[in-house]
């Protein structure tokens, strides 16, 4: 795999630690399993670091061939502009087909994270849009980059996670998953979400990204960026669509993002980490969790579990 992207390139390290090699092999096995058993799988590509690792593993899994599936990005139209640029570069570079879907009804209704609120925006532009896309292209399996260490309800998720017709997740009635004998059989209308990074931690993802020289969106690295302070969080104003509240004023601060989502719903952290080494360093010293900057998780108690039952990744 050649590394010639303009964005945030890191030199390739010689060899992987046994721990990362084991994680890599396990994930490659999962990805191959899906390709072998499903009629029409798709890989959800959310542009973040986890998606980057997942795509990298997929490219490795089928070497010297190409992954026998497409990528899908569910675009809420509120992603950072840098993310979209990066997305298009990556697709072009690997010669993989990238599908993009936006919920047309949501767009027509003018749903947005600012006046509609984060909950409705996420429901319509992410969850509903995802379900529309899966139905539209008749995908029977969809890869997601979620990890069990991210959030409590994700800790209970299977690697091959069954969805009944309508994309419903029933956490009380999941298929038992023993050994690595994944049950890949489904009936018409049923689908499977597959999580090849289930057993990775945030630290594993960064260490692997560094070791393998996987490109990441520059937003992960600290740089002077225009932000406003709102409810104790630093929000970057990526374009004119986000109005300022009385008393708010844009200021340039040295910030980066630990997790990337829709820009008004993703808070930045103050940081001086401009390389992956420094990001890892910073993470080892940090005292807040990865998703603390994701405003949608704090909507209500057990928020992620509710979203997942509805079909969110």
């Amino acid at each position: 795999m050649d590394d010639t992207t303009a964005s945030a390139r890191v030199p390739r390290r010689a060899s992987l630690s046994p721990h990362l090699r084991r994680l890599e092999s396990e994930s490659i096995g999962i990805i191959r399993e899906v390709a072998a058993e499903f009629r029409n799988p798709v890989m959800l590509y959310s542009i973040g670091k986890d998606s980057g690792v997942m795509l990298h593993l997929a490219l490795k899994a089928f070497y010297p061939g190409k992954p026998p599936f497409q990528l899908l990005h569910v675009d809420t139209t509120w992603k950072f502009r840098e993310m979209i640029r990066f997305r298009d570069q990556i697709a072009a570079r690997h010669g993989v087909k990238l599908l993009v879907h936006t919920n047309p009804e949501g767009l027509a209704r003018g749903i947005n994270p600012i006046s509609s609120g984060s909950k409705l925006h996420t429901q319509v532009m992410k969850t509903e849009a995802l379900k529309q896309a899966l139905d539209k292209w008749q995908f029977d399996a969809a890869f997601g980059g979620a990890r069990r260490d991210e959030e409590q309800s994700r800790a209970k998720e299977r690697v091959f996670s069954f969805r009944s017709p309508g994309h419903v997740w029933d956490p009380r009635n999941q298929r038992p998953e023993l050994w690595n004998l994944y049950n890949t059989r489904i009936n018409a209308g049923e689908t499977i979400r597959v999580f090849p990074l289930s057993n990775w931690t945030e630290l594993d993802v960064w260490q692997y990204t560094r070791a393998e020289g996987i490109p990441v969106v520059p937003l992960y690295f600290a740089a002077p960026r225009p932000v406003i302070e709102r409810d104790g969080q630093l929000i970057m104003r990526d374009d004119e669509r986000m109005p300022l509240k009385p008393g708010e004023r844009e200021q340039v601060r040295m910030v980066r993002f630990r997790s990337l989502g829709c820009y008004p719903l993703t808070a930045a952290i103050e940081s001086r980490a401009t390389t992956i080494d420094e990001i890892i360093e910073e993470m080892l010293l940090t005292r807040t969790s990865e998703r603390s900057g994701r405003l949608i998780d704090a909507d209500e108690a057990a928020s992620m579990e509710k979203k997942k039952r509805d079909g969110y990744f």
């Binding site: 721990h19 260490d149 409590q152 309800s153 800790a155 009380r172 057993n199 931690t201 057990a302 579990e305």
Partner: peptide, 26 residues
């Protein structure tokens, strides 16, 4: 106990996976 029902009932229903490490092992 990650699932809402588990937290409400104070019991563990499903397998949950947790990750931690010390200087010697993950």
């Amino acid at each position: 106990d990650g699932l809402q029902a588990e937290r409400e009932q104070g019991i563990t229903i499903d397998v949950a996976y947790r990750f931690f490490a010390t200087p010697r092992r993950a």
